[in-house]
Simulated assay, not measured.
Amino acid sequence: MINTLTIKNNLIYTNGYVKMSSPKTIESQRSVYISNFILSLLKTLHHKQLENKSNAKEFYKDNMFDGKRYDLIMTWCSGKYIHPMLYTNKIKKVLKAAKINKNVRFHDLRHTNATLLLQQGTDLKVIQERLGHKDIATTANIYSHVNKSMQKAATEKLLNILKD
């Protein structure tokens, strides 16, 4: 399928080590539709990685986990994986600079993703598949935080039905 990103593995940091793992469930291994814009960004990144590999020659670092080589999307110029905690640490610095006293992990952006999609009227089943949840209840109960504007819109829809 064109314009899809396939998710097969997770690079995680646990117990002081970076390792490659499989997603939690079969449903978590999935293909997600991406926009032409994101596809273009990924292609540009891939071409940059090929250029880095060509420039570094034998010094380019292969990412090996449990004896298997992985071709990762996010790497340094040397080819080495970018530590999974990098993005969490960057988010913390941005929040601190903005004087926002909240602990936000990179993974927490899934909550934002689900909520924004719900606000735009995206079907919950579509959101479930994009997030890779086995059970739609997980999506509905954990990731779909209802906000006041969504509550207001629901009230207005109900009022319009009752007025007729």
Rank of each mutant, 00 (worst) to 15 (best):
K53C: 10
M74Y: 13
L158M: 14
Y33S: 13
T139G: 06
L118S: 13
M1Y: 04
I100G: 11
L39D: 10
N36Q: 15
T14R: 15
T4Q: 13
H111Y: 08
E58T: 15
L116W: 05
N89I: 01
I82Q: 08
G121T: 03
H107N: 08
L159G: 11
N52P: 02
L39T: 11
N101D: 15
N103K: 14
I34K: 05
K163F: 06
K53A: 14
L124N: 06
K48A: 12
Q29I: 12
D123S: 07
K48Y: 11
L109G: 04
N63F: 07
E129K: 01
N55K: 15
S21F: 05
V32N: 01
L50I: 09
R110W: 01
I136G: 03
M150W: 03
Y143Q: 00
Y33A: 14
L124G: 01
H47I: 12
I38M: 14
L86W: 04
K93I: 05
A97R: 15
S31Q: 12
I100Q: 14
Y60W: 11
Y17P: 00
M64Q: 03
R105K: 15
T88I: 10
L50D: 12
K148H: 05
Q151I: 10
D66E: 14
D135S: 15
M20I: 11
D135I: 03
D108F: 05
K163Q: 14
Q151K: 11
I100E: 12
T4F: 07
T6I: 05
L42T: 10
S149A: 03
T138G: 00
E27M: 09
R130V: 03
N15P: 03
L39V: 08
L118T: 09
I127H: 01
D71C: 09
K68D: 00
Y60D: 04
I7N: 02
L42C: 10
F65E: 05
P84A: 06
T88P: 06
I127F: 03
L118W: 01
R130W: 05
Y87E: 08
A56L: 14
I161N: 13
Y143S: 00
K157N: 12
K90N: 12
S144D: 09
H107W: 08
N55L: 15
I2D: 13
T14Y: 13
K90T: 11
Y143G: 00
S54K: 13
H133Y: 02
Q119T: 03
S144T: 15
T75F: 03
S144K: 09
N160Y: 02
A137I: 07
L159F: 10
T112W: 07
R30Y: 01
V18Y: 04
V18W: 06
H107Q: 07
H145G: 08
A140C: 08
K80T: 07
S28W: 00
K19H: 09
S22T: 14
Q151V: 12
N52S: 11
A114T: 04
G16E: 07
